[in-house]
Nucleic acid binder design. Structure first.
Length: 292
DNA sequence: TGACAGGGGGTGT
DNA sequence: ACACCCCCTGTC
């Protein structure tokens, strides 16, 4: 398969290899793989390669190039010129823990992923690690997804999931999550536009509505809102963030739901972005101490 | 190389 | 609190 020549993607951002890894493979998205410094990934029907060259982000797509790919990529990666300026609204001046994490992970941001896909992949994510979630996504795409030029496979859409039998889903290593996906697919099939209607709702209502779906609790609802609906105030609390907030913010004994409320209040309208910085930092520190 | 625990970025009861 | 499913990982 032929690929377009590498092109630089503005704006200039102080990327490092580890920031790029955290962005593409740190738990926001599950369809990126790295080979020899080149990241290949897809979202929706877009297939793209990324690499770092001289600290600049470069991209390539299957040739012949489809017009608009660069724009779609900049949107997906949230490469808005004013992203960094917006981060000034985070309470880094009064929060040394956050300030340190933001310093260490400059350029990290929140991807803008398709809402329907985001719901699917996070429904697959409960008590699974990133490698396992990626494997499930790959299996789902292979078994039920669509084909793109070059043999790439999209994730199945919700109408396909609705008619798929549960055994097929279980063959994708979903385990008990297969039942949740069937249940959610039934709701979405019965009510066209269900997901789109989230846009009109305030954060709390959108979150509560998502939590009515089978298999969607507080954490997954917040992930879907943050990564798939641009709700940057969503503050997903998983076991990593729970540990960080207990240890670095002194919230010992707090329950996940209490920590989520604290996070939204303490960090404000960009709480989800703060969460991503803290999360990246926590994962790195844990990786540095395998025995811990 | 292969078998065997142990536990996992959560949800629902 | 505990079951839910099953797969990945570390270990012998």
């Amino acid at each position: 398969m032929k690929w377009t020549p590498w092109r630089t993607l503005p704006p200039p951002i102080p990327w490092t290899a580890s920031t790029l890894r955290e962005l593409l493979d740190g738990g926001q998205a599950f369809r990126w793989t790295e080979t020899g410094g080149v990241w290949e990934g897809l979202w929706g029907c877009q297939v793209v390669r990324l690499r770092l060259s001289d600290g600049k982000l470069q991209w390539s797509a299957p040739a012949p190039a489809v017009p608009g790919t660069a724009g779609a990529l900049r949107h997906y990666l949230a490469l808005d010129p004013d992203w960094d300026a917006a981060l000034d609204a985070l309470p880094w001046r009064s929060d040394a823990v956050l300030a340190q994490a933001m310093q260490a992970w400059q350029g990290l941001r929140i991807l803008r992923q398709p809402l329907d896909e985001t719901l699917l992949v996070f429904l697959c994510s409960s008590t699974k690690q990133i490698v396992q979630i990626k494997q499930i996504c790959a299996d789902l795409a292979e078994a039920l997804g669509g084909t793109l030029p070059g043999g790439y496979r999209t994730l199945p859409n919700w109408s396909v999931l609705h008619v798929a039998d549960e055994a097929t889903l279980r063959a994708c290593r979903l385990g008990y999550r297969a039942r949740y996906i069937k249940g959610t697919a039934a709701v979405l099939a019965e009510h066209p536009g269900w997901l789109d209607e989230l846009d009109a709702l305030p954060y709390a209502d959108a979150r509560a509505r998502l939590m009515t779906l089978p298999g969607v609790g507080a954490k997954i609802a917040d992930c879907v809102l943050l990564f798939g609906a641009g709700r940057l105030e969503a503050f997903p609390v998983d076991t990593w963030i729970l540990k960080v907030m207990q240890q670095r913010y002194g919230l010992h004994g707090w329950k996940p739901e209490q920590v989520a409320t604290f996070g939204r209040i303490h960090f404000g309208p960009l709480a989800g972005v703060a969460q991503q910085f803290l999360f990246a930092d926590a994962r790195k520190k844990s990786a540095a101490r395998p025995t811990q």
